[in-house]
Simulated assay, not measured.
Amino acid sequence: MSTDQVPGAHADEPHEQGLSQRLNWLRAGVLGANDGIVSTAAVVVGVAGATAEVAPVFIAGAAALVGGAISMALGEYVSVSSQRDSERALIAKEKRELAEDPDAEFTELVGLYEAKGLRRETATQVAEELTAHDPLAAHLSAELNIDADDVVSPWHAAFASAIAFFLGALLPMATILLAPHPLRIGLTFVTVLIALAVTGYVAAWIGGANRGRAVVRTMIGGALALAATYLVGSLFGTTVL
């Protein structure tokens, strides 16, 4: 049921089916972009700190971009697949329990609503009406907070993460390769911090968290990563190269 079909629903609150799917790929996309920006920028800045040559920076950045995108996709796929398998196992277990002992399951449902603050009579009535409509959905929602029609997809998360990582990684790559040599590291720092501010804001917006705090947190983390790798590159550049 969409938001405009729910009586009294607020337009800025999520009530639609499929919310877990959308939040899943949005979360994966934002995290992928953030990781693509930071990790690739850290690699190219570190190499640029060690050498003024463009070729090593390009090779290192390209390797970080491709390897990182594949790694992010694989990590998201494995993580979300585990979550999906757990949800499916819980759904199958609940189906079996409803088939084997529906009376005990009904008593449990009433108890769950009582624990939420409803009177016994009200809890019983709610349990009866929801059970008559869809007993499995009623139990999954009350007991496990799961929607059987909204199980997360690992493929969505994997593709969103890989594409977002790739696009995020292109930003520091393009900046450090196209900027004039004396300015390329400084411009990369600035570009990366602006991009991280955007991803931090979007991540906080998706989760309903404090946006200013998220922006500051991501920018500080990114700045530390870039400073650390640049320091390492500079040390090796002056002592080895």
Rank of each mutant, 00 (worst) to 15 (best):
G75N: 03
H139D: 11
E128D: 11
D103A: 12
A89R: 08
A99Y: 07
A115C: 09
V126K: 07
L74W: 09
E128V: 11
T122W: 00
K93M: 10
S82G: 09
A115G: 14
G75R: 01
H133W: 08
D85Q: 06
Q83K: 01
N145A: 15
E87W: 01
L112M: 12
T124C: 04
D134N: 15
E121F: 00
I146D: 04
A115I: 07
S86D: 07
S86P: 01
S71C: 04
L140K: 08
R96Y: 09
K116H: 12
T131C: 09
D149P: 06
L130G: 08
E143F: 05
N145W: 02
I91C: 04
A142V: 09
L109N: 07
A92H: 06
A127R: 08
I146T: 06
G117S: 02
E94T: 14
D147R: 00
L136Y: 06
E100N: 12
V110I: 05
A115R: 15
V126G: 10
T131W: 12
E97M: 12
S86C: 04
K95I: 07
L144M: 11
V126L: 11
A99I: 03
M72W: 02
P135M: 13
E97Q: 15
K95M: 13
V110Y: 03
N145E: 14
L144C: 07
T124K: 07
A148K: 08
D85P: 01
E87K: 01
D147C: 03
A142I: 09
E114C: 04
L98Q: 13
V151R: 02
V78G: 03
S86F: 08
A73V: 03
R96F: 09
Y113E: 02
A73L: 02
S79F: 01
D85C: 04
H139Q: 14
R96Q: 14
S71D: 06
R84I: 03
A104K: 13
S71F: 05
L74S: 11
E94P: 07
A127C: 12
G75P: 01
A89W: 05
A115T: 12
A73K: 01
V80H: 01
V110E: 04
T107R: 14
E97A: 15
V151F: 00
K95L: 13
T122H: 08
A92D: 14
L74K: 03
I146M: 01
A132K: 14
I146R: 01
N145R: 12
D149C: 05
A123R: 00
E143G: 05
E121V: 14
A73Q: 01
D149R: 03
A148Y: 05
H133R: 14
K116Y: 07
L109G: 06
T131D: 10
E143C: 07
A148F: 05
Y113T: 05
E114G: 06
E143V: 09
A137I: 08
A104S: 15
R120Q: 15
D149Y: 10
V80Q: 00
G111D: 03
D149L: 08
T107K: 13
M72G: 01
L130A: 11
E143K: 07
Y77F: 13
G111S: 04
V151M: 04
S86H: 11
L74I: 15
